[in-house]
Simulated assay, not measured.
Amino acid sequence: MRKLTGLVATVLAAAGLAAATPSAAQADTASLYAPSALVLTTAHGEGPDAAIQRAVTLSCAPRPMGTHPAPASACAELRQAAGDFQTLLSGEDSRMCPMIYAPVTVGIEGVWQGQRVSWQQTFSNGCKMAAATDTGALFAF
C-alpha cells in the first residue's frame, strides 16, 4: 500500500488538491463545488503490505471523469451514499463461496467533497469481495 501514497498524491495534484490545507480550503470558499478526486484499489493481502492489483481514478466534480470504467454511475452512487463507503457494500451473504483464506482488500483514498478520506475493507477471499461489492458501479473495475 506504500505505492498507493504516491498514486494518491499524483491524483490530488492533478485535481489541484495537493496543497489542500485548512487555510487553503478556507481561501477557496468561492468555489462552486467541493472537490472530489479518489483512487480506488483492489489488493491481494491485508494491511500495509497488501499488493495492489488494480487501481482506478475517479473525480466527481465538476463532472464525473477518470480511469474508472463508469465514472458517472460511480459518482451517483457516492452522492446517494453521502460518501459513506461502508453503505455501498452488500449486507447479504447469499453467494456460495469457498472457505479458502486468501484476503483481498478494497480501498478508497483521496478527497470526497472537500474532505480527505481513507477507507479500506478486507474480505476473506475474492469471492466474498465480489459478493459484497456487487451492488453497483463503484467497485466494478
Rank of each mutant, 00 (worst) to 15 (best):
P48M: 00
Q86I: 08
D84H: 15
S31V: 08
A74K: 07
A137S: 15
C127A: 03
A137G: 10
C127Y: 03
Q86W: 04
S118P: 08
L88S: 05
M99K: 04
P103K: 00
T21V: 02
M1T: 05
W112Q: 04
A140Y: 01
R79K: 10
L32S: 13
R2N: 13
T122N: 09
I52M: 14
T67N: 11
N125P: 13
T42K: 08
T105C: 04
D28H: 10
K3I: 06
I52S: 14
A76S: 14
A70T: 10
G107N: 06
G136S: 10
V39F: 01
Q53G: 13
L38I: 03
M129R: 15
Q80A: 15
T42F: 04
A82D: 15
S90V: 03
A50H: 05
S118V: 10
A81V: 09
G136N: 09
A27F: 03
P69Y: 10
C97R: 00
K128L: 05
A137R: 03
E77L: 05
C97F: 00
R2L: 12
A34H: 05
A24Y: 02
G107F: 06
R95V: 14
K3W: 13
G114D: 03
T135H: 02
C75T: 02
R54Y: 09
V104A: 02
Q86A: 15
S124T: 11
M99P: 00
Q80C: 01
S23F: 01
S59Q: 12
P98I: 03
C97H: 03
M96I: 07
I52W: 12
A19F: 05
Q26T: 14
Q26P: 07
A9W: 01
F139C: 13
C127I: 06
A27R: 13
T29M: 13
